[in-house]
């Protein structure tokens, strides 16, 4: 059983309150909570796309496999060239193999975390099979389940995600993370008009023990999916105020504005802002590729000369 501090840290991490988590002061190094908190903080840094801070935070030469894995993931996220990315992946692979042995280092928890971190890295690298393999088919680690579910969803297998979730439901009781997983599946499958996701996020926004703009963004996105565009905009605006420069929120805001009033010029302004500030965001990348596709497709149609009176 986790201590209440650690539980709180975990909750913040799961619900995406990374900013708050990063600003937390670490407990005493001798406390059993030290390393887990450290790890969550490091992962929060990574999630905020600030892997350098994570690397700085994590002690060098730790013998803890989870710390090693977190460091590898941080370096992997930080890496810019393919070679160093590969080397970090290789490290994670080694770690994943290392923990498989019966006399491997680290507690069961640490090993589970190694799998999650390695799986995350593999999924980022697009190695879906390897990620799933690393996470294991019969895991009883909810974090692993959440990663597995998202991977399934990303490859359009909501059926498998649902199965994985149903399986987890049997042993995970009503864990917060489990609810999050369920709502994630709901966002993709759209059962019951997204009402479950909507109420989950609304409930967590009302959670007094934390505040996370990520939740506002998530509800904003849910509301977009529910075709409630003005409401979505207001959620997203609020979220943007709390975390300036969050790509996800801005991207969702573009979509919400576009659907609320398609012809307004500010939509294009927002879009240009997103493109210039976050050129890496998948929406930007995707739309850019679609623009290219458009040109290719349009070129296949021969445009006859415009009819002219004196032609």
């Amino acid at each position: 059983m986790d201590s209440s501090e650690l539980y709180h840290v975990k909750q913040q991490f799961i619900l995406g309150a990374y900013k708050t988590l990063v600003d937390l002061s670490l407990p005493d190094p001798n406390s059993p909570d030290h390393t887990p908190t450290l790890l969550y903080q490091a992962r929060a840094h990574i999630a905020l796309n600030n892997p350098k801070a994570a690397i700085a935070l994590l002690p060098d030469g730790s013998s803890n496999v989870a710390v090693k894995a977190a460091a590898s993931l941080a370096r992997y996220v930080a890496a810019t060239d393919a070679a160093s990315k590969d080397s970090q992946l290789e490290d994670l692979r080694d770690l994943a193999v290392e923990i498989e042995g019966e006399d491997a280092d680290g507690s069961e928890k640490d090993r589970a975390l190694v799998r999650v971190l390695a799986g995350t890295a593999f999924a980022r690298a697009g190695e879906v099979e390897e990620a799933l393999e690393t996470l294991g088919g019969a895991t009883e680690d909810l974090e692993a389940v959440s990663v597995i579910v998202q991977i399934y969803l990303s490859i359009n297998r909501p059926d498998l995600a649902r199965k994985e979730f149903d399986r987890a439901k049997k042993w995970a009781e009503d864990d917060l993370l489990l609810q999050l997983i369920e709502s994630t599946i709901g966002l993709v499958s759209g059962k019951d008009g997204y009402s479950n996701c909507n109420s989950f996020y609304t409930e967590q926004i009302g959670n007094p023990s934390l505040s996370s703009p990520h939740l506002l963004t998530a509800r904003g996105v849910t509301r977009i999916l529910r075709n409630e565009f003005p409401e979505a905009k207001s959620d997203l605006e609020e979220s943007m105020e709390q975390q300036k420069g969050d790509a996800e929120t801005l991207a969702a805001y573009v979509v919400a504005s576009g659907l609320a009033a398609p012809k307004k010029p500010e939509v294009d302004e927002l879009w240009n802002r997103l493109v210039s500030e976050h050129p890496e965001h998948p929406l930007v990348v995707d739309v850019a590729s679609k623009a290219q596709l458009f040109d290719e497709c349009a070129a296949k149609f021969e445009v006859p000369p415009t009819a002219a009176a004196r032609a």
């Binding site: 991490f13 995406g16 990374y18 992962r43 929060a44 990574i46 999630a47 993931l73 996220v77 995350t120 999924a123 980022r124 959440s146 990663v147 998202q150 991977i151 969803l153 990303s154 999050l180 997983i181 709502s183 994630t184 966002l187 993709v188 963004t217 998530a218 996105v221 977009i224 999916l225 996800e248 991207a251 969702a252 979509v255 965001h281 998948p282 929406l283």
Partner: peptide
């Protein structure tokens, strides 16, 4: 639209 429910994973395409 996109959302990242799980830390550090690529966002989910919705």
């Amino acid at each position: 639209t996109y959302l990242s429910p799980v830390a550090s994973l690529p966002p989910l395409h919705l």
